[in-house]
Computed example of a mutant assay.
Amino acid sequence: MNRGGIMGQELMKHFERIEFTHFWDDSDYALEEYVDEPPTDELIASIEEELGYKLPASYIAMMKIHNGGIPVNTCFPTDEATSWEVEYISITGIMGIGREKPYSLGGEFGSLFMIEEWGYPDIGVVICDCPSAGHDVVMLDYRACGRDGEPAVVHVDQEQDYAITFLAPSFAAFIQGLVNEEEFDTSEEDKQEDLRRVAHGQFSPLLSELCANVVEVEHIEGVIRTICAEIVEEKGHFSFHADERSMLMYDLQFWLYTKAYPQTTREQYLAIYEKMIAFGGAFGTGGYAPAFITDWLDARLQQGQITDSYGILRFTASAAQQLIGRLIAVVVADVHDEFSRT
């Protein structure tokens, strides 16, 4: 029997109820960020030594066939509501055994990174990231079995003080329990709720204070709500990433803050950022990935739109004027739309 047949038999020994032919969604993104070559025994041993835990046999068998990736079924039902406010959790992908791919156990955003940089509890191995950009993960939990035993699978939520929710007694049980997101599809309801939030949610005290200082753009509060509504319409939810409108919102928040507090340093701005919209209460995204903010800031510095003078950050006059022009254009478009409806 060839090697592929042997590995296939090993896989089916652990996963009797799964047809793996259609298990993975091998999109370009998945292949770029997750999927790696099958791991050698030497690489597996090296990763286990680095992490300090023996990986489950079922996980190793699965990775030897398809090393990491994004499954078609990404949801796992729970017995109680989690931070998702529903009785399931969702994963983005499953980390492979390796170091080359960003989302692999030893990769740039792998298990040690999540534990050491994000503060997740050292109870085992992070095996799945989630759509929250780092604010919750799925882990192999070795607390009951020891570092060489068969770990349970748990969900850990950073936003809820690293609350741990039991998911499955083993990795194989977790994989066999994954279901399609269509079974929990509330996307349209979520979109409508986020549209209501950006239309009527009360601004945070800081954002209200900053808007009160603006004289260059009429109805700045309405401009912010309009841009954020366009983001929700485009994405289906209220969040900022690296798209054009999100970048506009990063620019807008920076302009608002440094206009009111012109002696702002990088450290001060990164620390205060979350109090404007990210964790802005009724009008807020409910979270953010710090890397998006630092990447945006570094890009603006490199482009010369933001200057760093003895540690003090500010937009150049031309960059600020260009931003103001874009914001005024939003006002004009709103007036035109209102006129067209009357």
Rank of each mutant, 00 (worst) to 15 (best):
S208Q: 14
E150A: 12
S187D: 09
T165M: 10
P169S: 14
Y250M: 12
A173N: 09
E183K: 13
R196S: 13
Y257M: 04
S204A: 12
L248Y: 01
G222Q: 12
H241A: 11
G146M: 13
V153C: 08
L256A: 05
R225M: 07
S132W: 03
A199L: 13
M247Q: 11
E189T: 09
Y257V: 06
A163H: 05
F238K: 04
A199P: 03
S132C: 15
E188R: 11
R197V: 10
Y162V: 07
R147G: 08
V156T: 06
I175P: 00
I164Y: 02
E193S: 15
M139F: 07
A163D: 07
V126M: 06
W255T: 02
F174M: 09
D136E: 12
D185K: 09
E234P: 03
R143S: 12
C228S: 08
H241Y: 11
H241R: 10
L195D: 04
Y162R: 06
E218Y: 04
A173G: 11
I227C: 10
L210Q: 04
P131G: 10
R147V: 14
F203L: 13
H241G: 07
A163M: 08
E159G: 14
L195G: 07
L207Y: 02
D243Y: 07
Y257R: 07
R245E: 09
T165F: 09
K259T: 05
F174I: 13
D157G: 04
F254G: 01
I231T: 03
I123W: 00
T226I: 05
R245P: 00
E182A: 14
S204Y: 01
L178C: 14
H237G: 05
R147W: 04
R245Q: 11
A168S: 13
L178H: 04
A144Y: 05
L256C: 05
D190L: 10
E230H: 08
E244S: 12
A163N: 09
C228L: 09
G177F: 02
V138Q: 07
A199R: 15
V215G: 00
Q202M: 11
D122E: 15
F184T: 06
E181V: 10
